[in-house]
């Protein structure tokens, strides 16, 4: 996993906390959106480094007033920040949306480990429901349990009754859980 120090080697910028609220929304226009390093664009990296410069309450405020790209950048940065569990409500907010990008981002990184099993299972099922690919889900196979299997089985049953297809990745996961 990339660390803040690694990002700093590619983007050697120190952000003053007072500048962050104004700079954060403008990061794409100011630093560009080109790929910077493995899995990170320049604006995402700049935003992660900005978040590292401000206290948790400010991270929450930035997320609250963020557009989709800003919210995605916050979710991506969460595992790199010393924010403890204070970012969990942001994940929960993202999972309440109907925007596939936000739902995918909430489950896509190691910070999703902080979601309790019930919330995590509901979120995985929501991915199946929305068509978000399951290979995006962090530690899917380690965390998938028999309760998730039961939920997927019920969902598959509903789909079958309606004459509709189940996404192939969800069927594969269900098969694997039933083998265990």
């Amino acid at each position: 996993m990339t660390t803040l120090d690694e990002l700093r080697t590619f983007l050697p910028t120190d952000f003053k906390p007072a500048d962050v609220p104004a700079l954060f929304p403008a990061a794409g226009r100011r630093y560009g959106r080109a790929p910077l390093t493995e899995g990170w664009t320049t604006d995402e990296a700049a935003r992660a480094l900005m978040l590292a410069a401000v206290p948790p309450a400010e991270v929450q405020e930035i997320y609250r007033y963020g557009d989709t790209a800003e919210k995605l950048a916050v979710l991506k940065a969460l595992p790199l920040l010393t924010i403890g569990d204070e970012g969990v409500p942001l994940l929960e907010d993202a999972l309440r949306t109907n925007d596939t990008r936000l739902v995918a981002a909430a489950l896509g990184g190691p910070y999703a480990d902080r979601l309790g099993p019930e919330a995590w299972r509901q979120a995985v099922l929501k991915c199946v429901f929305m068509g978000v690919p399951l290979n995006n889900v962090h530690r899917l196979h380690e965390r998938a349990d028999s309760d998730l299997g039961a939920m997927l089985r019920a969902f598959a049953h509903e789909r079958q009754a309606a004459g509709r297809d189940m996404p192939a990745d969800a069927t594969a996961l269900l098969d694997r859980l039933q083998e265990d």
Partner: peptide
């Protein structure tokens, strides 16, 4: 610009 996330197509549409 919008339909891919982490290289995956994510706009299969909500069910």
């Amino acid at each position: 610009a919008e339909a891919t996330f982490a290289g995956n197509s994510i706009l299969r549409g909500g069910s």
